[in-house]
Design a protein around this nucleic acid. Sequence first.
DNA 1: TTAAAATAAGGGGTTTTCCCCCTTTTTTAA
DNA 2: TTAAAAAAGGGGGAAAACCCCTTATTTTAA
Lengths: 213, 213
Amino acid sequence: MKPHTVVIVEDHILLSQAIASLVNSFEDFNVLFTCKNGQELLTKLKTPSNIPDIILMDVNMPILNGIETTEIIKNEYPKIKVIALSVEENDTTIIKMLKAGAKGYLLKDVEKDVLELALIETIKHGYYHTKDVSNILINSLSDDNSSKIRLKDREIEFIIHTCSEMTYKEIAEKMFLSPKTIDGYRDTLFQKLNVKNRIGLVLYAIKNGIYKL
Amino acid sequence: MKPHTVVIVEDHILLSQAIASLVNSFEDFNVLFTCKNGQELLTKLKTPSNIPDIILMDVNMPILNGIETTEIIKNEYPKIKVIALSVEENDTTIIKMLKAGAKGYLLKDVEKDVLELALIETIKHGYYHTKDVSNILINSLSDDNSSKIRLKDREIEFIIHTCSEMTYKEIAEKMFLSPKTIDGYRDTLFQKLNVKNRIGLVLYAIKNGIYKL
DNA sequence: TTAAAATAAGGGGTTTTCCCCCTTTTTTAA
DNA sequence: TTAAAAAAGGGGGAAAACCCCTTATTTTAA
């Protein structure tokens, strides 16, 4: 039986190469290539011999992140199974990733045996989840609200500016909107995200990866 | 020539094992053992056969972090060379780590060859730094101020409350101080940390681990 | 095609934040 | 022990943030 092929998408090169050497040490699995972000991956996949069985995908990457990339993969290469790899235990991130089509979600602090198991199970049954992730999933599906929060592009833009020590007046200018409209954005977001002031917005943004430190 | 021994201290187990398999693939280097935090490391080091030549140390770990652990190592096992391994490009963190006695500081997005080079150079010359880290070092030593910032307990308390979506009035009550004193805290901190408003304080706090998300 | 959302904006108000500059008391260091 | 520095507090004011409520205009969906 020829080994299953794996591609690693991860911006931290050391981690990327380290995982590669780990995967290569597993029986039945071989790393085809590694790349640093989604864009690089999509370019490489255009060559038919580069199509792997499984992609180990980091969630937080520059240029084209894991969520967006996974969505594209799902549409263009539905046979490839994507396993998300992340340090984030953030509920919404996990849900986004799984909704995008990831077959598994591994936190980066798992044992190497778990990684191997995840690869094997995903090949066999099409999916694999650790208990932690399953629990997070169940919790957030039951009290269905976290997934309901869907921020619009303009709102995200507003939040990012808020995180940049800008006043609302400055934000209004940058976004070519009246200060009063910005007032409205703030008010809706306070309610939507259940925060009391700008600080809460900033915390939310950082927690959910909207604003990178 | 017998290989140099390496110990990996890293809380993300997958990364830990992955780096281990990488280090083992290098000529002249062998992983003695890995552990998840400073406490675990210190316990293991009590066995004389467990003393390595080099420790690859993550900076952000639970229980006993890289900086504290490195300080202890420097005092109790001065012959062991510590190389810091981190995703953080944060100036103050790097400086703290080097002050604690780290012989090198590697960002986690380096090539595996760089890791090998770092190990070799550290054995040979006692230290190794990538250009990025050297630059950060030079910059922050020249405009000597980042290292001068020393926050008092009360100031830290104030910052934490600020991060908790509290108004200054509420903070004053919680800290048993007049709102006017709080006014003073804020003003000194704005100047000290070179920020424009509360948001800047929050960002600083999160970046420097004063406030945990 | 028509009602319901969503988007943009204004009016007008209170509270909070931010920025000076100033005094008293306590702590620290020379 | 005495001068200096730090900590706590105050006055007053301008700007920013926050809150609620209303109105056009555009977009979306039934």
